[in-house]
């Protein structure tokens, strides 16, 4: 049966690449006493996929992994049994059995459902942006100005050529604190997100307090990484981008409800 697992990835585990996270879960299922289904063919392997592989160095409250298990139990039991075999830095927060392919005509992989994703981007302690940005207030002023531009162009490099892309339409929601972000989310999600989030965030907090909440496009047609937003911000400031200065943390991944056109976290949709 096809299952979708939601988990948090934090602490030192942000240095484990997504292929190794897959290997980790393959072994974790075995330790918990659940067998995976194997692909047929020349090189049988466990069937598994991520909604969106997380880059090295990024932490997350909302990782989704689809897997095929021989059997599964009640989500509450599954979550407990899997958490019993986790190491620090991985925490399972959701488990659901997906409908069979027959009942569900449309594409069901988590990856294909993705529409937007929420991120928290924080300045790490020990790093500066420039001398005039001292705190969250001054940062907010400059960042708002950056967003007020008619278009935010970045250069996208492909193998063949470079093209200019305006990323402004791909930045859906911006907020400077949790409360503001939740209020803004309430206008776009199908239900209030607070209800779904019954666990504490594992996002690292920094003393400097400079941070921004971003909701950006994450579909196969239109995909924006939060790093690119920050890079464009540095361009705007005419500064060289320091990729190590920012801790990116994924909060949630959503799909879009076809009827209401509102957002639903990936583990709450019906498919």
């Amino acid at each position: 049966m096809k299952v979708r697992i939601k988990f948090q990835k934090y602490g030192a585990m942000k240095f484990i690449g997504h292929l190794d996270v897959m290997r980790y879960f393959q072994k974790a299922f075995r330790r918990a006493g659940y067998e995976s289904e194997y692909s047929k063919g020349y090189n049988p392997h466990q069937i598994m996929s991520f909604a969106a592989p997380l880059g090295l160095g990024i932490t997350s409250d909302g990782e989704y992994l689809d897997a095929e298990l021989v059997r599964a139990e009640d989500p509450v039991i599954m979550i407990k049994k899997l958490n019993d075999v986790m190491t620090e830095g991985f925490h399972i927060t959701g488990f659901k059995v997906l409908k069979d392919r027959e009942e569900n005509q449309k594409a069901v992989s988590a990856m294909s459902l993705m529409d937007v994703a929420d991120y928290l981007v924080s300045l790490k302690d020990g790093y500066d942006i420039n001398s005039s940005i001292k705190d969250q207030e001054s940062f907010k002023k400059v960042f708002d100005k950056f967003l007020e531009q008619d278009s935010i162009d970045i250069v996208k490099k492909t193998k063949k050529n470079e093209t200019n892309v305006n990323i402004k339409p791909m930045i859906k929601v911006v907020a400077y604190d949790k409360k503001e972000f939740q209020e803004k989310l309430a206008t776009v999600v199908k239900e209030t997100p607070i209800k779904a989030v019954n666990y504490e965030s594992v996002a690292e907090a920094f003393d400097n307090g400079i941070l921004v909440y971003l909701q950006v496009s994450s579909s196969s047609a239109e995909n924006l990484k939060p790093e690119l937003v920050m890079e464009a911000f540095y361009d705007y400031l005419q500064l060289e981008f320091n990729k190590f200065a920012w801790q990116i943390h994924r909060l949630e991944i959503y799909t879009r409800d076809e009827e209401t056109k509102r957002l639903i976290p990936l583990d709450e949709n019906e498919r």
Partner: peptide, 17 residues
Amino acid sequence: DEILLSVEKPARYIGGE
């Protein structure tokens, strides 16, 4: 973080297995 993200396979140095 800066060092770990600059080297090959940072998982070699973090323990916690």
